[in-house]
Write a protein that binds this DNA or RNA. Sequence first.
DNA 1: GCCAACGTTGGC
DNA 2: GCCAACGTTGGC
Length: 150
Amino acid sequence: MKTEPEVFSFDDLMAAPAKTTGWEGVRNYQARNFMRDGMQVGDKVFIYHSNAEPPGIAGIAKVASAAYPDPSAFDRKDPHYDPGSKRESPTWMQVDVQGVKRLKRFVSLEELRASKRLTGMRLLQKGNRLSIVPVTPAEWEAILEMSGTT
DNA sequence: GCCAACGTTGGC
DNA sequence: GCCAACGTTGGC
């Protein structure tokens, strides 16, 4: 799951009450579907810092709720407000995400790209802009090893 | 700041 | 339903 650290970093997540936050503001159907259909409570996720110097994976979190309607879509004052999303038929969903631990070592995008084990990784595909992308078990394991995290 | 890649919008 | 225009993402 990507986040811009200047907006909300992995440290911000760890500092949040119960290390938990609603992953609001996703406004892409594929990314929404990954949250709604592809995630179970307890699933682990990597938190990736985009638009960062350097970009890369900062830490591990876990899915802490089933998908539920994203309240920011209903809020006129919110930058992610979407008048098309109604309370009775919400367009946008979110899950709660709970910080687990910082990677022992930050794994930069450059390192991810250099890893032969990660050549097929969705995150690394050309033109990928999805804010939520699946990670295979093999990719997960490779990244954990690269980060020195057990 | 640039710009490639991609998703969405809206006129037709 | 097509597709040009536009907006956004995100690495560099």
